[in-house]
Design a protein around this nucleic acid. Structure first.
Lengths: 151, 151
DNA sequence: GTTGACTCTCTAGTAGCTACAGGGTTTCTA
DNA sequence: TAGAAACCCTGTAGCTACTAGAGAGTCAAC
């Protein structure tokens, strides 16, 4: 299987596959005489695992841990449970943060229901209100989950 | 006011202030003879506006638009409304995505309630199940809102 | 034999900072 | 007044997880 075939089979861009190889997420495959990468079935399985985890918004570091655990069948899966619980915690916390954010934004939006000059715009003066605290989301350290905007 | 004072007053790291200047978010301030930046009150106000918007998870591009609108008092604030509505849309969509994600993760977590060998771990085999679709979040294009993980 | 699709490596760009390195300036204290 | 500490300067590289391109080589079909 060449890289293009693997890309199609896993719905992953070719560049991403090469990137995963550089990052040690995928093992280095064999090569043809012409220096093309040659993949086996197990590469596909591993890649699909990675893509599925990424689809669950896990970081590559988290995926690395899971791969390591998968590769060492003697270990117990307590660590897997732990990692998953933590990840669920991240997601739940982010949802709570975003709910607060949504509420704040809607309140701000309320302050201007019509089209006026920017000078009188309630929204801008609301946003300019320096007595306000910086919203909570900024106070947090950055994390690894994907951001809100999606287009 | 020197950069350190501005940093304290706005709870913003010094490097971030210089970064905003490079990005054209903050206007270039005056300089002392020793080449230190000198800020006035209006710099502080502008910076607080920026930080507040960033705290609302707006992108710097969105902030740039708002600043432009603030700077042109002749324009009406229809654009402000529009921008805010779109941003609220981003946030609401991300919340919906994350709720789906949370549900999926909890289902996966359910498949392993106890500590077993990794070979038998229901979670790993669940994640490895290649018949599964890549979760929806991966199908989306990336956006600008902060990711889920936060420590 | 040549066209086109595919692949290769290497590099740079994305967002929004953050963290140095290697200097200069100012301020405080002895 | 000397020296140290605290501040400031520019410039560059790093972070995540890719993505996009340049410039070149390989392979299959016609």
């Amino acid at each position: 299987m060449k890289i293009g075939d693997l890309a199609t089979a896993s719905a992953t861009p070719v560049e991403t596959i090469r990137y995963y190889e550089r990052e040690g997420i995928l093992p280095k495959p064999g090569r043809t005489l012409g220096n093309y990468r040659v993949y086996e079935e197990n590469h596909l399985e591993r890649l699909q695992f990675v893509r599925y985890c990424r689809g669950l918004d896990m970081s590559l570091d988290e995926v690395r841990v899971l791969l390591r655990l998968k590769d060492s069948p003697d270990e117990n899966c307590g660590e897997v449970n732990l990692l998953l619980d933590e990840h669920i915690g991240h997601v739940s916390r982010r949802i709570r943060e975003l709910r607060v954010l949504e509420k704040q934004l809607k309140e701000i939006r309320q302050t201007c229901g019509q089209t006026r000059s920017a000078e009188q715009c309630g929204i801008l003066s609301e946003l300019s209100n320096t007595s306000q605290e910086v919203p909570a989301t900024l106070a947090k350290k950055k994390g690894h989950l994907r951001s809100v905007h999606s287009d």
